[in-house]
């Protein structure tokens, strides 16, 4: 590693001032430190943000939602009682690396690392998560979905700090699920992943649908064809099949060592269908799919 300065401020204002001077934030370090050690990234000043209380807190929001500090470890997040209402977030956080990694890695870091394959992001997009951001000009909020520019790059300015991921309260009669495919069960990177979220009315008709895909585009993406097909319908095996086929059309994968483009599209088709079926099972209205 090249020489660098190290600071561990305890306030957001101090951290933002350091970032404006060219420093980079360190949360769990499971991406940043690896990149620095492998010489893929040179950083002149590392700012450990874990000593800022807001960045490791889970806070209830006035609307009934919650704010999850950007640097809170996945393990501590998953154990927090407020996350019980967001099982898809807990489950996808627990897909990140090993137990050792989850004791350090945060969902804020997963977002900022901006990998197209990031495990936590599709569920965040499905649940309508917002990013709370601080910068030299003050604070702003952006949908998580709008944060990604290209692999490894968010739209945050260099001087900005992700403070928290803010989740709205889950509406009544809604359910979410993220599924991924990896050759190994643990410790692997998604060849493709599909997150789904459905909201129904009292009669079981889908009123809103979100489908978010991983590893099939330069950034995590929504699948609008699949979403539009689902709205206004009562889920059936045929409908979920169709939604899977449409999600595969929404995907824009490349071929690489982990899978061909065609294989990834096939994975999206199957994973979307299965994730939707899981949402239906959560509603207590199981749909039989392969």
């Amino acid at each position: 590693m090249k020489e660098f300065e190290f600071s561990a401020p305890t306030t957001i204002a101090e951290a933002v001032a350091l970032l404006a001077g060219g420093a980079r934030p360190l949360a769990g370090g499971t991406d940043l430190i690896v990149q620095m050690r492998e010489g893929r990234r040179a950083v002149g000043h590392v700012v450990d943000v874990k000593r800022i209380p807001e960045l490791t807190a889970v806070t209830p929001m006035p609307d009934g939602g919650i704010s999850i500090g950007a640097a809170l470890s996945v393990t501590r997040m998953a154990a927090h009682p407020a996350l019980a209402r967001y099982p898809a977030i807990v489950e996808s956080g627990r897909m990140i690396g090993s137990y050792q990694i989850q004791n350090r890695a945060s969902i804020g870091g997963n977002v900022c690392n901006a990998a197209p394959s990031a495990d936590a992001i599709p569920a965040l997009i499905c649940l309508g998560a917002q990013a709370a951001i601080a910068g030299p000009q003050g604070r702003r909020t952006e949908p998580v979905e709008a944060l990604f520019e290209r692999p490894g790059r968010t739209r945050l300015a260099e001087s900005e700090l992700l403070l928290a991921i803010v989740l709205p309260p889950p509406p009544a009669r809604s359910a979410a699920k993220y599924l991924r495919f990896t050759p190994r069960r643990e410790m692997d990177i998604a060849v493709a992943g599909a997150g789904t979220w459905l909201r129904r009315d009292e009669r079981g008709v889908v009123t809103e649908a979100r489908v978010a895909l991983a590893s099939v585009a330069p950034t995590p993406i929504r699948a609008p064809l699949a979403e539009r097909r689902l709205v206004g319908e009562i889920p059936s095996a045929a409908l979920l099949d169709e939604a899977g086929i449409l999600a595969a059309q929404d995907a824009r994968p490349i071929s690489d060592t982990r899978g061909s483009a065609g294989y990834r599209q096939e994975l999206v088709r199957v994973l979307t269908r299965r994730a939707l079926a899981d949402c239906c099972a959560q509603f207590g209205s199981p749909v039989d799919v392969a």
Partner: peptide, 12 residues
């Protein structure tokens, strides 16, 4: 909590 010491900075 178990962590990988190779990707933790000492000063952290």
């Amino acid at each position: 909590a178990p962590v990988n010491a190779c990707i933790v900075l000492a000063l952290e």
